[in-house]
Write a protein that binds this DNA or RNA. Structure first.
Ligand SMILES: [Mn+2]
Ligand SMILES: [Mn+2]
Ligand SMILES: [Zn+2]
Ligand SMILES: [Zn+2]
Lengths: 149, 149
DNA sequence: CTTATCAATGATAATCATTTTCATTGAATC
DNA sequence: GATTCAATGAAAATGATTATCATTGATAAG
């Protein structure tokens, strides 16, 4: 439990940032909700239950800070706000997102399988790929079954 | 020249939308700037030169309309506003975007080469893929050369 | 354990992209 | 040419995010 938490808090301290209770609470909550894609507002609502005095601005600032440290990744699903998720370990690229056009559910897909494409891009264009962000739009398994077939 | 323009205007009329001079001007301009990724504000500024009376709300409304008809695709490069580009023909998926982390340039990459990955996703998760949105982050050819090589 | 420092916080106001409202205009139809 | 109602432009409203600023408190020195 303290595993990932400790690593992140250490990272903050190593970068000279202060370990405030608000930051600790926010990081703990992000780990608790590591399967979700929380917006600042989502996170604020959750975190407020444990610290009713916390400010929305602090949530925004902390999310920005963690994203700047690459602890978090900011993602945009086109619903009018930024969402955040824990980043993959340094040597992995970010997982893909499968977005159901029927029910809106977002699921992750872990294998990236893009090495070949990235090498092709580099060969043909000279563009050196560092990372990618991939979204697939379609119909999830549940919705396909619900639609009979 | 009237080629793509006429097809889009016909599409509007077929869907019972009125062919106003504002819509015609906006579509013409989008075709003129088909290599770019214009924001509503960008487009407004350009279009205002030919019709100083045009309103920003009309630009927003027309972009929404064209996106709802799949004439345009809305893309988000994380710079605080939505951007638009002409959609690929119906049977093609959208092209990929290569985004340079050094100079910010966005270039397209046309072959999608994701058929295999999409089949793998469908096989393993039951998710039926209709389309994708793919961004690669890295360093463009120019910037790599500028950085010595 | 104090004390001093200055980063961090919370409340609030400000920004900025986008949307809504509403009176007026004009494209399409007959 | 007259009718109708979708489309427009100006302006206000909205909503996410950011900036401001007085106050607080984490951290490090004494
Ligand atoms: Mn995810
Ligand atoms: Mn493009
Ligand atoms: Zn679904
Ligand atoms: Zn570059």
């Amino acid at each position: 439990m303290g595993e990932g938490l400790q690593r992140i808090l250490d990272h903050l301290r190593d970068c000279q940032y202060r370990l405030t209770p608000q930051r600790r609470l926010i990081v703990e909550t992000l780990l608790d909700y590591s399967q979700d894609h929380l917006s600042a507002e989502d996170l604020y609502r959750i975190v407020k239950r444990r610290d009713p005095a916390i400010g929305l601005a602090t949530v925004y600032r902390t999310l920005d800070l963690l994203a700047s440290l690459a602890v978090l990744t900011k993602v945009n699903f086109g619903d009018g706000c930024s969402r955040f998720e824990l980043s993959a370990a340094k040597r992995y690229h970010h997982h893909h997102h499968l977005i159901c056009e029927a029910c809106g559910v977002v699921q992750g897909f872990d294998e990236d399988l893009l090495g070949g494409l990235e090498r092709t891009i580099e060969r043909r264009t000279g563009f050196r790929v560092h990372d990618h962000e991939v979204k697939f739009y379609g119909i999830c398994h549940q919705c396909r079954q619900a639609a009979e077939g």
